[in-house]
Computed example of a mutant assay.
Amino acid sequence: MRLLCFAHAGGGSAPFVRWGAAMPEGVAVCPVRRPGRESAYSQPLLRDTRAIVDGTLRALQPLPPCPTALYGHSFGALVAYEVAAAMQAAGATPELLIVSAKPAPHIPPALPNLAHLPDEQFVRELDRLYGGIPGEVKAVPELLELMLPVIRADVAASESYRHAPGPPLRCPIVACSGRDDRAVEPERLRRWGELTACEFAALEFPGGHFFPYDPGSGFLGMVREQLSRRIGA
């Protein structure tokens, strides 16, 4: 099985590289790297979710057919959902979609838009809502200057996203939240259940917005269990 992983706004593939050792035997962890970061640094940034999804689908085309699960965190959850829907429309319905720290995409957003704000205010609001930029990055102006356009592009893509009604997914969805996440209300997360014709679970974990990256949250154990069930089916 292939597990496609989609990071939060501004995120890259690094957090997922270490996940392989925690997965069941036979699962390949495949981080999906968006343009403008890491080894794709020279590629133009994308500010449109549809363009990101289309680029992801093109990147997947050369890969051999394989049962696929998808995971997306925060903005990555939107991308993962849209990729799952496109795979289903092409006759390759995924086995599972896991999302975290993102309200369901078909309900109106409750948070204010941030992408248009000046840099200082943009950083301040990201910190207030998500605790999102590490202190070691903010402490180095040159590093922050490199990171801000990447984060801003992803935030702009998330804020301009509009859900297009379509058939429900024919795969289970597991929607996860952090107990102390100020940006995601549990009832808005539970509405992911309206987007699948299969099983749905809403799970809560200790931590804030970035709980999946905390080894002590238990999140990776849940992912392993979910994938083990599908491999053994």
Rank of each mutant, 00 (worst) to 15 (best):
H209C: 10
C198G: 05
P24M: 04
R34F: 06
L111G: 02
I151F: 00
P118Y: 02
R34M: 07
F16R: 11
C66D: 14
C198S: 07
P112R: 03
E187P: 01
I133C: 05
P94H: 03
A14N: 07
E187Y: 04
L3Y: 07
C5F: 10
L45S: 05
D154E: 01
F6Y: 04
R124F: 13
D180M: 09
Y81I: 01
M87P: 15
V123G: 09
P64I: 06
V79W: 12
F6A: 00
Q43R: 12
L117D: 03
I133P: 14
L148F: 13
C171G: 10
E187A: 05
S158R: 13
R230G: 08
V150T: 09
V29H: 04
L97A: 01
A89E: 08
G55E: 04
A101M: 00
E185G: 06
L46S: 12
D214N: 07
A84T: 04
A51M: 04
A86H: 13
G178N: 11
V137D: 13
P24W: 02
Q61D: 12
P35D: 06
R190I: 06
E204W: 07
P168G: 08
L78K: 02
H116N: 06
E38R: 03
W192R: 15
R33C: 13
Q88W: 11
G72E: 12
P65G: 02
P165E: 03
E145C: 15
V223C: 05
E185C: 09
F122W: 06
R2N: 10
V79R: 10
E159G: 07
F122L: 03
L195S: 11
H73F: 01
G10W: 09
R124E: 14
A175D: 02
V223A: 08
I231G: 11
G10Y: 10
L46E: 10
G55P: 04
E125P: 09
H209K: 09
R34H: 05
R230I: 11
P112I: 02
P168S: 05
R182A: 15
Y81F: 01
P109Y: 11
E38N: 03
I133K: 08
